[in-house]
Design a protein around this nucleic acid. Structure first.
Length: 1137
RNA sequence: GCGCGCGUAGCUCAGUUGGUUAGAGCGCCACCCUGAUAAGGUGGAGGUCCCAAGUUCGAAUCUUGGCGCGCGCACCA
């Protein structure tokens, strides 16, 4: 027998008990065991970092990540879910630095790399418990016990293998490049990291004069004007660039002959004058090519000796000034500035290319060396005395002040633009800086990455060619190395003598090297501190101590380079590194690659989505030995929108514009949150996280489902409907299994309502399966929601009489078969809905299942809904005609109510008749509808219902073209045809169509259009004067005239209503009988009550009804203008009707 | 600057290949039910589909150009 159900569920408490039960039962493991050997559904967990608190956005990803594996498991696939944690990198180091109150690398070195690394390793797990709690609380089924961890030795060794492969193929190289440099942190960042740190700032924007030199090397009064937003790069100026085929002008203030002259690009001359608020006259006009080769005086003499420009020999013979000379460059534009570009090769990528090109012009070794007045820590070196030892950006003001004092500052303003800051230390601006760095040659694989991408199923689709495709198109080599401490060490050992390098694939490979030494450093540390994790032996500083004999030079040693790698490479290697592949886990890797499904938020386009695709394409792509077919590493990816706070702004802790997930769980429960995410909006829209919206998602689905379930259990217990006693072997509790139940009748034998319910149920299951297979959970959720609405607001509502009828529902001698049918139908419906909804709201559905299947069968049935098969719908049980007709009935009922409301005739007032005119019904629908008159009468409280025989009394018909059909046929004649149809005699036309299936309509401008029956739509409109309501499907007309009999009945129903209210106020049990005393001065009301005495006593369980003088306490009422005093008192013993 | 997405009722959002009366939930107003009851149901009001031009017989939907919001990219010197 079913357990009793609380009418008011406490979802959070319920969920806690379900979660505990899953844990005790090992339900997740059972769901896997059950599917072992089946086709796999491969899911990859993008590793979150556990050293930050989880927030609502993580709840969304975890919900989506849970939904599809659950669904696929129920569909019969085997879906392992291995958790993972991202543990390396800057986020961890920065967190530890904050804790230690330090910032710079020198401070870390002073603290000691070894203890620093220990701190990092501990810090990784700082919020572990919060993450585990969240994961379980939201019902994300994933195996945390076997989680992969990026700092574990086996993981690091897999990454080493990947890097060694790339190194051996020449795809991992060391380059001298201009990189985005985090000076305070002393490391370069990848473009992905840089991109995360852009912020709008106002920088100084300065226009600086570079005086041109005359032939003798002396400054003239004519100056180039260069523009920069980074004044601190001026001391390192090396060239000025112009566009050769662009026109330049020399400007001078009128009447100031001999005064300063400025050279700017002609198209920018006007805006230049406006900025300076000065009128200039053009002294001379010359092409950029005429400027090329001229020498100028740099703004600072940091690196320039006094006197004429120094020259150096050119490769092609002759000599040229080696620096501070005008060069031609194509990248010069007239978008902004002056058309003359200040070139500081140390601090810009294009600037650097200018230097490289110049160096090539000069004789070998004689070309210009890189000028750089800035140290790696971001401070000026002693070469630039004014700023020596100070952070360069802090010197901008002093530099401009100095330029102004020397008359070189032509103009200054503020320039607002986006500038990158360190993504973890957001007050540190990044600078471009020349640096030796390790790169992966990804740009060479652009086409292959695009080919791989083309095969991926992206949701939403536009990601493929939009954001992600664009990102791949503009691919640059991956700046891999980090001059930091806590990360996967770059497994490259270099010969101290020859500089030749080799890559190491595993720790065992390393130990096998000849003359290995230094491993004792870790052993000793471990002896001192036995708790030291073995995994740290592949980390700094221990790994740095390991050296071996060089194969390149006798007697020399091989030492590891100092760098660690970008932690995004770690996560991108996860598809194989999670198994320790290729050193271990062959079977697992082969079975679990590539992923069928992954999902993360949109910020991962250049994070995890990219790192997986890049690594995989390089290692396993078309060019690779043993290449694998695209797509890999994932086939389908749902890209989630970013979550916004309550105010529609970005979520931010400081603004407190969102509720902590824990609060939501405690107040509303995880299923409420999940339903809000899954059914609220398409997953890729940016979701507004709103407590109110979460709360409101409960009644719409969870509570409605629960109420039906609770209704079912209450009456099943009363009527003895106990499937456990009626069905020996529950099987899967499918339709076919239930058919073995005692008293079960074939659907064809059941009432129409039952057949309708099962039709809707099976049609919905089929539609949901189709949606879910297409990864459209939003569409599926909408179907599910309207199914639950159909059960609650039509099936249960229309079946109440059967549930409350006399007789039992246990299949025994006292059984009322109609009632039993209703129970079997609702039981099957609820069981099926529980399964359909299980992936969406796993807790509530489990609670329902455990009672309907679990308690009912005392353990003989499947213990968990998540072990069941997902219902895919049985087409044989779907009666499409019935579904359509029932929709018409519901429409008619709704129109009837609308017509009543318009006439202010409340439903309690019985009416004589309602008539319906169907707009475009199939012929037999009308007959069907008339056969269901009692249903309509009941819903609308009328005596009589019919499909109108003479519709012309009530309505006019208009014939409209079916534009979708006639449009293509008639084209430009369509408006004429529409006019013609509007003017035509509708009745005659309809008759012609009915008779011949087609009709000819003369067009206004001449000509004739042939119209077939299917080309037109008939619209019916109620004529004025009738109480009617219309929809596209039907017009409903109600008889608004009231006879005295009807009025009397209406009065009586008002009285019954008053009595029922009174019963409720007296807190009577619904089986309590009452005694009634009425007193009224209205003869009409008294007569009505007398006449309908039986009805009153039946409805209110009145044992006696008297007229007379009621006790003083009797409630006075006004019944439609008739005074009435009613006394209600409790009568004899209870008895259910 | 370039690119991507979004802009529909007071609020949060749907709207399937262009088609006749643009939908839902919440809120609001009115009503119903009182044997799922601190629930439930029905009806109603409420919309220049951001603006403009274009394509088309027909545009919320397609094109172009604006405006606003969000995000991404980076040769912003």
């Amino acid at each position: 027998m079913f357990d009793p159900v609380r009418g008011q569920p406490d979802f959070p408490a319920l969920e806690a008990s379900i979660a505990a039960w899953w844990r005790e039962q090992g339900t997740y493991e059972k769901s896997l065991t059950r599917r072992r050997g089946s086709e796999r559904f491969v899911f990859f967990e993008g590793p979150p970092t556990a050293n930050g608190m989880p927030h609502p956005g993580h709840c969304l990803t975890r919900t989506i990540k849970d939904l599809y594996p659950r669904y696929r498991t129920m569909r019969g696939q085997y879906c392992e879910r291995k958790a993972g944690w991202d543990t390396h990198g800057l986020p961890v180091e920065v967190e530890v630095c904050k804790e230690l109150g330090i910032h710079s690398k020198s401070e870390i070195e002073a603290y000691g790399v070894e203890p620093f690394i220990h701190k990092c390793q501990q810090s990784v797990w700082r919020y572990m418990r919060e993450w585990e709690t969240l994961t379980e609380r939201i019902g994300f089924w994933i195996d945390l016990s076997k989680a992969y961890v990026t700092y574990h030795q086996s993981y690091v060794e897999s990454v080493w293998w990947a890097l060694a492969e790339l190194f051996d193929k020449g795809l991992l190289y060391q380059g001298h490049k201009i990189v985005w440099w985090w000076a305070q942190g002393g490391t370069a960042l990848s473009s992905g990291e840089v991109g995360q740190g852009y912020r709008e700032v106002a920088d100084p924007s300065v226009y600086v004069a570079f005086p041109l030199l005359d032939a003798g090397g002396a400054p003239t009064s004519r100056s180039l004007v260069a523009w920069t937003t980074t004044p601190w790069t001026l001391p390192s100026n090396q060239f000025a660039a112009v566009k050769a085929d662009l026109d330049y002008v020399v400007l001078r203030e009128p009447g100031s002959a001999g005064g300063p002259e400025y050279v700017v690009a002609e198209p920018l001359a006007a805006s230049f004058g406006e900025k300076l608020k000065k009128e200039f006259e053009v002294v001379e006009r010359l092409p950029g090519s005429a400027l090329v080769g001229r020498s100028y005086l740099p703004p600072f003499d940091t690196f320039r000796p006094a006197g004429p420009p120094a020259t150096a020999p050119l490769a092609a013979g002759g000599a040229d000034a080696s620096a501070w000379r005008v060069v031609a460059a194509d990248f010069v534009t007239t978008d902004s500035g002056t058309g003359i570009v200040h070139i500081a090769p140390a601090f810009g990528e294009v600037d650097y290319t200018v230097l490289v090109a110049e160096q090539a012009r000069f004789a070998a070794g004689k070309g210009p060396a890189l000028i750089n007045a800035v140290a790696p820590d971001g401070t000026f070196t002693d070469a630039f005395g004014m700023g020596s030892g100070r952070f360069v950006k802090d010197c901008d003001r002093d530099i401009t002040r100095d330029l102004r004092a020397r008359g070189l500052l032509v103009h200054q303003e503020q320039y607002v633009h986006d500038y990158p800051f360190c993504w973890r230390a957001d007050s540190d601006p990044l600078i471009q800086y020349p640096r030796q760095s390790w790169f992966i040659r990804t740009s060479r694989f652009r086409e292959q990455m695009l080919a791989n991408n083309a095969r991926i199923d992206w949701l939403p689709e536009h990601i493929k060619d939009g954001r992600f495709g664009n990102f791949l198109e503009t691919n640059v080599d991956w700046a891999l190395s980090r001059e930091r401490y806590w990360g996967t060490p770059l497994p490259i050992w270099v010969c101290e003598q020859t500089g030749k390098a080799e890559a190491i694939r595993s720790y065992a490979d390393l130990l096998a090297k000849p003359g290995i030494g230094g491993t004792e450093v870790f052993t000793k540390a471990k002896a001192v501190n036995p708790g030291l994790s073995e995994d740290l032996k592949v980390h700094k500083p221990y790994i740095d101590a390991v050296t071996y004999d060089s194969p390149f030079a006798p007697g020399a040693r091989m030492r590891r380079v100092t760098e660690v790698i970008d932690c995004w490479f770690d996560s991108g290697a996860m598809p194989f590194a999670q198994w320790g592949w290729p050193h271990a886990g062959h079977a697992e890797f082969e079975a679990q690659f590539p992923a069928d499904f992954i999902s993360e938020a949109i910020d991962q386009t250049r994070g995890w989505f990219y790192s997986q695709l890049a690594i995989s394409t390089l290692l396993f792509g078309a060019d690779a030995e043993g290449s694998r077919p695209y797509p890999h590493t994932f086939k389908t990816c749902i890209v989630l929108g970013h979550m916004l706070g309550e105010d529609g702004q970005k979520m931010s802790k400081s603004k407190r514009n969102y509720r902590e997930p824990a609060e939501i769980f405690d107040k509303y429960g995880a299923d409420a949150l999940r339903w809000f995410f899954l059914a609220g909006q398409a997953p890729w829209t940016s979701i507004r996280y709103s407590e109110r919206a979460i709360k409101e998602s409960i009644p719409e689905f969870l509570l409605r489902l629960w109420n039906v379930y609770s209704f079912f259990v209450i009456y099943a217990r009363i009527d003895g409907f106990d499937p456990g006693a009626m069905l020996e072997d529950p099987g899967m509790l499918d339709h076919a299994d239930l058919a073995r139940g005692r008293g079960w009748r074939a659907v064809a034998d059941r009432s129409e309502l039952d057949r309708w319910m099962l039709s809707e149920l099976n049609a919905t299951a089929a539609a949901m399966t189709e949606r879910m297979d297409a990864y459209d959970h939003f569409g599926a959720a909408q179907r599910l929601s309207s199914l639950v609405d159909a059960v609650s607001n039509w099936f249960v509502r229309r079946s109440r009489d059967r549930f409350w009828a006399a007789g039992r529902a246990d299949g025994g001698v006292e059984t009322n078969q109609e009632k039993l049918d209703a129970y079997w139908t609702l039981y099957e419906t609820l069981l099926t809905i529980a399964r359909l909804a299980a992936p969406f709201t796993p807790f509530t559905t489990e609670a329902i299942w455990r009672n309907l299947a679990g308690a009912a069968f005392g353990g003989r049935a499947l213990e968990s809904v998540h072990l069941a098969d997902y219902p895919t719908g049985d087409a044989a049980l779907v009666d499409h005609d019935l579904v359509r007709r029932m929709a018409v009935v519901r429409d008619v009922a709704s129109l009837g109510r609308a017509a009543r409301a318009a006439e202010k005739l409340r439903v309690r007032q019985p009416l004589q008749k309602v008539e319906v005119i169907l707009a475009d019904a199939r012929p037999d629908d009308a007959a069907w509808l008339e056969a269901h008159a009692d249903l309509v009468c009941d819903e609308l409280n009328v005596k009589q219902f019919e499909v109108c025989g003479e519709p012309d009394r009530y309505i006019t018909r208009a014939i409209l073209p079916d534009l979708k059909k006639l449009g293509p046929k008639l084209g430009k004649d369509l408006p004429k045809a529409r006019d013609a149809l509007a003017k035509a005699d509708a009745a005659a036309l309809l008759a012609a169509l009915a008779a011949h299936g087609r009709a000819e309509v003369p067009l206004p401008g001449g000509g004739v259009a042939t119209v077939e029956q299917d080309d037109v739509i008939v619209r019916t409109t109620a004529k004025p004067g009738w109480a009617a309501a219309e929809s596209p499907r039907a017009v409903v007309v109600i008889a608004k005239d009231l006879t005295p009999d009807l009025v009397a009945e209406g009065l009586v129903r008002e009285v019954v209503h008053a009595i029922q209210t009174e019963r409720k106020e007296l807190d009577l049990e619904f089986t309590d009988r009452i005694d009634l005393v009425f007193a009224t001065k209205s003869a009409e009301l008294r007569e009505a009550l007398e006449r309908h005495r039986d009805y009153v006593s039946g409805e209110t369980l009145a044992a006696s009804i008297h007229f007379g003088t009621p006790p003083a306490a009797a409630e006075p009422h006004d019944i439609d203008g008739h005074p009435l005093a009613i006394a209600v008192t409790k009568a004899g013993p209870a008895a259910r009707s």
